[in-house]
Design a protein around this nucleic acid. Structure first.
Length: 775
DNA sequence: GCTTCGCATGGAA
DNA sequence: GTTCCATGCGAAG
């Protein structure tokens, strides 16, 4: 940079006089002299003040020739070979960067440009326009001037700045001039709106019809400025807009980028402009007999949008109803595939990290095609990934035979996979699938609920399959399963601003199990169904589940103390009390039978027999209660009346001193069960006490603390602490023995575990109690 | 009995 | 009412 910077128009000179801004001139310009000539715009937005001589040179375009001839940065115009002082703020307006490299003087750039009203109102805009022209001329795509072209009007205090120009031109080259798709993005290039753009006032930046657009957007309150926290921007499609896409903002506290409130709703002008070419990947035409793996032909499916905004924003499959979509191969896809036919859930979301992940640092262009959340079927061993029909038909090769074609896909780590892209006839339609995805799914450790994103890398035309773990979208992610290498950034917590306005609760969470009517299920499917669906019911009936547990009859408990809390440990399995809806269930439970049979031998024998034939629901309940992944789920022999393999909550407890310790924060099912039982019984006991006392005394005179001081003291609700913080956890029986002797004297509240809600009026005749200290 | 394939089914949009 | 698509399911290997 050779621009004079040493002279400040107001710093060194006395108020009455100023020095010519040209550092090589230093001519004093007095205030009384004729008005100082204006030079170039400074970074501060001010105008350099020059003496008459320097100003004349500047106006004649010979300033740099005169004063900067000995400094570096000189290049020649690619067209007329005129010398251009590149990188100098003085000459920043006199040339443009060519996309193919090199520079071109503004005169040459202007010659070939049709100038229309509202256009070319600034050199910057000209640069942009010319850049488009050059870009389009260098590429085979069809280039058509659009109403959006040249709509970027100069923000005078910004656009003259060299750094701005540089940044702008980079953005123009890499973002606006992408051969259109949703966003023609170059990895490593920031496709967010850069920070300085926040200073743009849309009304000033956008003129003409586009200005109306911005106003319209403003009228709808749909500006990024409305959300000061929205500092991250992604291009996305918005079904709420007529154009179907807009710049969305994402809160990104770590980002210092700022939103540019632009929404490209289709202007009437745009609709009328039949020449607007909206990029749209064209279905691959493949010979039916082609069997070799194919990749996406580079550029072939693309048409170019010369409008920078359109180019930047239009998604690959978006076509306005009124827009003529012309493909380079002459096919028109607009009528065949209006964007409204593609469900929003398949609209791709892509971020910088996505791009980096997909293509690394190479100068490749990423075209996000679509994404799909994986279903259970997709990740099943069958290895068939169901493709959305529209996506398959638009972005994948056209296939006419069910056998389809092998499709070569690269994953984000660079591995190549070959899937069979095919379809099945289905209801006079087609159902497209990718077969053979199991290895890839497994390699990526994908699960149902994760999202795969299909993109295309140009110019190779390679199809890339990225993925986004569902866990990355949730705070409940499991760091162990979180593939940091391939995971994509988590969306903001406020998902309402996640660029794609799909049903966040669905798209960002595991798929909701289908409510499809249960059919005949295999054993495996039954198990899955229980885990997925029945568990929901069971979760809702945990309270009832707690009440179903009863100590076995005629058994004496041994008292153990776990973390200061006494437990009665029975040598026999607990009795599963019946629930009302189970009373008619013949399978019932052995314990129920035993209980109701009064403990007779016959009843016990029947109970043991029935114990094996428990109902699915009860078995599920028991399984859920014990948890299949309990570390201490190995059956023990301490409960001889239970058969080997019994997984009741008693049997799963290891023998005293042999089980692993349960940490206080342990969330295994045993601990959870105990906690819930504590809670249930405590609440019940407390309510009973309160009720009992209230019957004796006026309620107002009896504070709860007098009723059950232990409970009040330890009740997490009274302290505001979470139950998990307060509820004691099982430490297993390993340390039980030692704690028994070490435990201090406790106030024992004895609660009858045999209480049956539906038979509460009946006193328990079994004398089974559980000793616990309310927490 | 298991896996794969191809189609059918039916809930959801 | 239509279409999509997740998934069930029987046949075949």
């Amino acid at each position: 940079m050779s621009a004079p910077v040493s002279n400040s128009a107001s710093a060194a000179a006395p108020p009455a006089t100023k020095i010519c801004f040209n550092s090589q001139c230093k001519e004093i310009v007095a205030d009384h002299q004729p008005p100082r000539k204006k030079g170039w715009r400074l970074r501060s937005g001010e105008i350099a003040e020059l003496c008459g001589r320097c100003s004349s040179a500047f106006e004649q375009g010979t300033f740099c020739e005169t004063f900067h001839s000995g400094v570096t940065g000189w290049r020649n115009c690619e067209t007329c070979r005129k010398r251009l002082h590149c990188g100098c703020i003085v000459s920043a307006q006199t040339y443009i960067y060519l996309d193919a490299g090199g520079v071109e003087c503004i005169a040459c750039a202007t010659k070939s440009l049709p100038k229309t009203p509202n256009q070319m109102s600034s050199p910057s805009m000209l640069m942009q326009h010319v850049s488009e022209r050059r870009d389009s001329s260098a590429k085979p795509w069809k280039s058509v001037t659009t109403p959006f072209s040249g709509q970027w009007r100069q923000a005078p205090h910004m656009w003259n700045m060299t750094n701005m120009q540089s940044d702008l031109q980079q953005r123009l080259s890499y973002e606006f001039d992408r051969p259109c798709s949703i966003e023609r993005l170059t990895p490593g290039r920031r496709h967010y709106i850069s920070a300085h753009e926040k200073n743009f006032e849309p009304e000033r930046v956008i003129s003409g019809s586009v200005n109306n657009i911005s106003q319209d957007r403003y009228a709808h309150g749909n500006t990024g400025e409305n959300d000061p926290n929205s500092t991250r921007k992604l291009v996305s499609m918005d079904p709420s807009t007529s154009s179907g896409f807009k710049i969305e903002t994402k809160p990104n506290p770590s980002s210092n980028l700022h939103p540019l409130p632009i929404n490209l709703q289709t202007s009437p002008v745009a609709k009328e402009d039949s020449s607007l070419v909206v990029g749209l990947p064209v279905p691959f035409s493949s010979s039916h007999g082609a069997k070799g793996p194919i990749t996406l032909p580079a550029n072939q499916p693309l048409a170019q949008v010369t409008s920078p905004l359109s180019s930047q924003l239009c998604p690959p499959h978006i076509t306005e109803a009124g827009l003529q979509v012309q493909m380079r191969n002459g096919r028109t896809k607009g009528d065949a595939f209006p964007r409204t036919q593609l469900l929003p859930r398949y609209w791709p979301t892509i971020t910088d990290q996505d791009l980096q992940q997909i293509s690394g640092s190479s100068q490749t262009i990423i075209t996000p095609l679509f994404e799909k959340m994986l279903t259970a079927s997709d990740v099943a061993r069958i290895g068939r990934l169901v493709l959305p029909k529209k996506c398959a038909e638009v972005y994948f090769p056209t296939i006419s035979q069910p056998e389809g074609l092998p499709l070569k896909v690269q994953d984000t780590s660079g591995r190549n996979w070959t899937f069979q892209f095919r379809f099945w006839p289905n209801n006079n339609s087609r159902m497209y699938v990718l077969e053979g995805v199991t290895p890839c799914i497994q390699a990526m450790q994908l699960q149902a609920g994760d999202t795969v994103t299909f993109s295309r890398i140009d110019p190779e035309g390679k199809l890339v399959m990225g993925f986004r773990k569902a866990s990355s979208n949730s705070n409940e992610q499991d760091p162990k399963t979180h593939n940091s290498g391939n995971d994509l950034p988590s969306p903001p917590e406020d998902q309402s601003t996640w660029p794609i306005q799909k049903d966040v609760s669905i798209s960002r969470s595991l798929p909701v199990p289908s409510k499809r009517k249960a059919k005949t299920l295999g054993s495996k499917n039954k198990r899955l169904r229980i885990e997925n669906e029945e568990s929901m019911d069971l979760k809702l009936t945990w309270e009832e589940a707690q009440k179903l547990l009863h100590p076995p009859p005629n058994s004496s408990p041994s008292i153990v103390v776990i973390e200061g809390h006494e437990f009665e440990e029975y040598e026999e399995a607990p009795i599963l009390g019946k629930m009302p809806y189970l009373t008619s269930n013949q399978a019932g439970s052995a314990c129920i039978a035993a209980q109701e049979s009064g403990g007779s031998k016959r009843g016990k024998a029947k109970a043991q027999k029935d114990n094996v034939e428990v109902s699915d629901r009860l078995a599920a309940l028991a399984s859920l209660a014990i948890g299949e992944n309990l570390p201490a789920s190995q059956p023990t022999t301490k409960h001889p009346r239970h058969k080997p393999g019994c997984s009741c909550i008693v049997c799963i407890q290891p023998p005293s001193g042999k089980g692993p310790k349960h940490k206080p924060e342990c969330n295994c099912n045993v601990c959870l069960t105990v906690r819930r039982r504590f809670k249930t019984l405590r609440e019940k006991r407390q309510s009973e006490k309160e009720l009992e006392i209230s019957e004796k005394q006026p309620p107002s005179t009896i504070p709860p603390s007098d009723v059950l001081p232990e409970a009040r003291t330890n009740d997490p609700r009274s302290t505001g602490a979470s139950p998990s913080d307060e509820i004691p956890s099982l430490k297993g029986t390993t340390n039980v023995d030692t704690e028994i002797s070490a435990s201090p004297p406790l106030k024992i509240t004895q609660i009858d575990l045999n209480i049956q809600p539906e038979r509460e009026e009946e006193p328990s005749t079994l004398q089974q109690t559980v000793t616990l200290v309310p927490y």
